[in-house]
Amino acid sequence: MNQSSANVAGASSSAQPLLQVSDVAVHFGGIIALDGVSFDVQQGAVLGLIGPNGAGKTTLFNCLSRLYIPNSGDIRFAGQTILSTAPHKIADIGIGRTFQNLALFGTMSVLDNVMVGGHSQSSSDFLSNALRLPWVKTEEEGLADASWELIDYLDLMDVAYTPVADLPFGTQKRVELARALASKPKLLLLDEPAGGLNHDEVEDLGSLIKQIRDDRGITVLLVEHHMSLVMAVSDHVVAIDFGRKIGEGTPSEVQQNPEVIRAYLGTSD
């Protein structure tokens, strides 16, 4: 259902991008983290956002999930500005994310982590939970069912009841992905998903990202250092440095962009 509606929207979306970042600026005191960055993410695309350390990638991500408030500019999702949306409503409108340094619920099992991911997809409250009303049980079963589907999809069946803090790093990254998918996002923000993974794991991650887009019709915005991964999975790449956009285009265009090369390799002068 999610997928078909996404495809229908995708067919008519050439006019309107799913995400529009326009002229976003963020200052921390005198430090300019983002200085008027603009780009669009088309429905159904994988967009890679690259840039050296400190370029402002994570700051931009935190604006998208409303952890930071931009000093100026606008961010529009499906045509609507998100800047007036409360941070906890971002999952509701269809934006899910993972974190650069993992932000899991350490004491909870994999299953419970994924079920918290489905929080925005459910509605029972204190009273109905305390009394365990009949519809609460139905809702819990539905939520558990959706969570198991994702646990299977990300090959986490064998560790489903293990507290996530006891799992190896690579596995925890997959738990974060499953948790983000549990909110049934239209747009998935991945903050350096390849960080800390070995060569084989990075390759698997690449095919997984494409698969998430293809199977579920989810648009992906990928922040990544790992250049070969970005170039392999992205349809479109945006490069930023010192808070400004320095290049944009297909992966091969961006790779040949002299500004991007200079940002990554430095200049002789």
Binding site: S65, L67, H88, A91, D92, F105, H119, S183
Partner: peptide
């Protein structure tokens, strides 16, 4: 429990 373990992630999940 999610708020106890990681408040920012809990908020991102819609809590």
């Amino acid at each position: 429990i999610a708020i106890r373990d990681n408040p920012i992630a809990a908020q991102t999940m819609g809590v």
